[in-house]
Design a protein around this nucleic acid. Structure first.
Lengths: 132, 132
DNA sequence: ATCGCACACGTTATAGCATAACGCAATTGA
DNA sequence: TCAATTGCGTTATGCTATAACGTGTGCGAT
């Protein structure tokens, strides 16, 4: 899915996520956009829904938060599975792709005749700076 | 962490999860245990916290639900990373372990000097029966 | 024995995350 | 022009999780 021009709300939400130096919850985004007229959670969730669809934003399931894609230039959906390392201290997120991991998981699901739609890989821990 | 004898509440929660044929939310567990005197979410969450610690229950982050471990006989924590395939139609969960996947992820985090604490791999899709 | 501690438990209240349902406005294309 | 689609705003609600307080029980150390 390629990203068409963003609507006003989508652009606002995306900018907030891009400027943030870590993942944000939907309600945090809402608070940051109150000055721009945002009043209700749905305004955020609806924008996020589209941004996720376009592949320019990721949802971190394990912490109920959202983060801008690390390489906005390319469509992230074409990279296969995305894995995240999330620092539980400072909140920073590392993003990476590994085709071998994809293969192993896909081989397994294929063997089980399971039709995979969406895969989540999230590693929580401490980043280099925080582990010191 | 090996499982000591379970307390009454822990045993009740664990039995509910074992009998269920799929993951359950904390509040669903609560409802199933009202007849046994459960009145508040914390009674469930506190039991779950211990069961997770003992490795006999898994939390599925992507659907906010809990499931009994598929091989209760062995300590699941000793198997390395656990991956789940979750059917979005019938709710059934397949559980598996792959040391090669573990390796790839650990190599990557080591390269980034990231200290991994807890890793989540969840594949949502359709199981064999539901995909037909 | 009893004091102190750790732990499980119960209760009330609250915080945090997400969506349902309604209606309106703008756009598009048959 | 009409119908369908999409985005938007609002109110209300539901689901998920934890804070904070107090009680009781078992058990080891003094």
């Amino acid at each position: 899915m390629n990203a068409p021009a963003l609507t006003k709300n989508q652009a606002l939400v995306f900018e907030v996520l891009e400027r943030a130096d870590g993942p944000l919850s939907a309600y945090t985004i809402l608070d940051k956009l109150r000055d721009h007229g945002f009043r209700a959670p749905l305004q955020v969730y609806r924008a996020l829904e589209k941004l996720l669809e376009y592949g320019v934003v990721h949802r971190l399931e394990s912490i109920n938060a959202f983060v801008a894609c690390a390489h906005p230039e390319q469509n992230c959906h074409s990279h296969g599975i995305v894995a995240f390392a999330i620092c539980e201290s400072c909140g920073h997120v590392l993003e990476f792709h590994d085709h071998e991991v994809d293969h192993r998981l896909m081989n397994w699901t294929r063997g089980k005749k399971f039709k995979a739609e969406k895969t989540t890989i999230e590693i929580r821990g401490l980043c280099e700076a925080c582990a010191a």
